[in-house]
Amino acid sequence: MKRRVFLKGSFAAGTIAVAAAAGLLTPRRVLAASWPETAFDAKNEADAVKALFGDMPVVDSDAISIKAPLQAENGAVVPIKAWTSLSNAEAIAIVVEKNPAPWATSVEVMPGAGGLYSTRIKMGQTSPVTCYVKAGGKIHKAAHVVKVTVGGCGG
């Protein structure tokens, strides 16, 4: 009797452990797949946006604010803060037109998070920094030119 209980118990525990392991592993696999490889490989801005968001109409928008320096002395660290008043923002991307790989970074926003993304990026030379926000089946964009005195893309 005791043996049976023990076996049952250990079997149940084993199943839970397997389930937990599977549960833990799955998100990681999903994440690895969702990193935008094609956007990163894109050599111009249009391709990067297409790779990231697909074919969607792109419109200029006043609902996006970008806080970035007018002139960056050090291109290796350019703080960029982008936020939007669009309530249904799904993704925010920061694209630097004249970088060797224009796509810098993007964030997918899920319910529970707001339309704000702030980061520090590298810039090779003076270039417009464009912030794209995907919301309601459209891509909204706003740009800000940052002058760079010393580039920060290696070399």
């Binding site: 994440l31 993007s106 899920m110 993304y117 590298k122």
Partner: peptide, 10 residues
């Protein structure tokens, strides 16, 4: 939220 970063991030 899930952020995707590339080498262009500082």
């Amino acid at each position: 939220a899930q952020a995707s970063l590339g080498p262009a991030v500082s």
